[in-house]
Simulated assay, not measured.
Amino acid sequence: MTHSSSLRLVVFDVDGTLIDSQAHIMAAMTHAFDALDLPCPPREAVLSVVGLSLPVLMPRLAPDLEPDGHTALVEAYKNSFADIRVKGAGTEMSPLFPGAEETVERLLTRDDLVVGLATGKSRRGLDHLLKAHGLTGRFVTEQVADHHPSKPHPSMLLTALAETGCEAADGVMVGDTSFDIEMGRAAGFRTIGVTWGYHPRGALEAAGADQVIEEYDALEAALERVWEV
């Protein structure tokens, strides 16, 4: 789909920004490490790397393992994550953050914006999550880990620009981690950090976020502020 370059593009991260998936992530990670008879890293360590693609994430969590061990952890995590989803617990363990649905809905109805996603999730994982929350087909561009280098590489956002016809100067990346902010800056986007996810305000500011907000109700005003600069 191609749009006029006068349109502005807002791209959301998913885990920690739209969806509070920490319970699902921690359960799957615990099962993955158990499968290899390894102790699961603490919650803080796991949440600190959410947003990275799994092949990049696992070596950070288990630096002493050989590459084959990292590959086994990735597969065990994927299988566990899918098992939890199949058992019907996915939506309860991955609810939308307060205010997310209403705010995104308002943005989706604006005729001066296009709205997209850029996530470290797989295509399969994102499809299931969007279906569970009634969001299938709502976003103009959806970038997933299957087709790109891990964040903070700008590939996801550069592809989103190509798919929408928007200019980087008219793009904003909204995310909860320094990886999102760094990716946005690398792609020439403005960036908005959100504090309800998995990285603290200080990390978002250190990464160079143009704005940092603490609730969804503040997002639309923050968008106007970053576009005024």
Score class of each variant (00 low, 15 high):
residue 76 A to L: 02
residue 193 G to K: 11
residue 124 R to K: 13
residue 217 D to V: 10
residue 149 P to S: 03
residue 37 D to M: 03
residue 106 R to A: 10
residue 127 D to H: 09
residue 204 L to H: 10
residue 134 G to K: 04
residue 86 V to Y: 07
residue 71 T to R: 08
residue 164 T to Y: 06
residue 147 H to N: 15
residue 24 H to Q: 03
residue 175 G to K: 11
residue 208 G to V: 03
residue 123 R to A: 09
residue 170 D to W: 01
residue 177 T to L: 05
residue 105 E to I: 01
residue 163 E to K: 13
residue 141 T to L: 11
residue 58 M to V: 06
residue 145 A to L: 05
residue 224 E to C: 09
residue 22 Q to R: 02
residue 22 Q to C: 03
residue 156 M to G: 05
residue 31 H to C: 03
residue 154 P to H: 10
residue 116 G to S: 09
residue 19 I to L: 12
residue 12 F to C: 06
residue 216 Y to V: 03
residue 163 E to V: 01
residue 229 V to E: 12
residue 191 T to H: 14
residue 42 P to T: 04
residue 83 D to F: 02
residue 178 S to P: 02
residue 215 E to G: 08
residue 26 M to A: 02
residue 123 R to H: 10
residue 152 P to H: 11
residue 22 Q to H: 01
residue 160 A to P: 15
residue 15 D to C: 04
residue 36 L to G: 14
residue 13 D to W: 06
residue 74 V to T: 07
residue 185 R to C: 00
residue 110 R to E: 13
residue 69 G to M: 00
residue 169 A to L: 05
residue 174 V to C: 12
residue 124 R to L: 12
residue 77 Y to K: 07
residue 203 A to S: 15
residue 146 D to T: 03
residue 5 S to I: 05
residue 29 M to L: 05
residue 219 L to A: 06
residue 92 E to L: 00
residue 49 V to N: 02
residue 40 C to Q: 07
residue 207 A to E: 14
residue 203 A to R: 15
residue 9 L to Y: 01
residue 110 R to P: 10
residue 148 H to P: 09
residue 127 D to N: 11
residue 71 T to L: 00
residue 176 D to W: 11
residue 100 A to E: 06
residue 104 V to I: 10
residue 200 P to A: 15
residue 43 R to S: 03
residue 176 D to Q: 10
residue 40 C to P: 02
residue 205 E to Y: 02
residue 132 A to Y: 12
residue 66 E to A: 12
residue 139 F to M: 13
residue 2 T to S: 07
residue 204 L to I: 08
residue 82 A to P: 02
residue 229 V to F: 03
residue 130 L to D: 11
residue 157 L to R: 04
residue 8 R to Y: 00
residue 85 R to E: 05
residue 190 R to A: 10
residue 103 T to A: 13
residue 21 S to C: 03
residue 152 P to E: 11
residue 65 L to N: 06
residue 67 P to F: 05
residue 142 E to D: 05
residue 173 M to A: 08
residue 177 T to D: 06
residue 159 T to G: 02
residue 229 V to I: 09
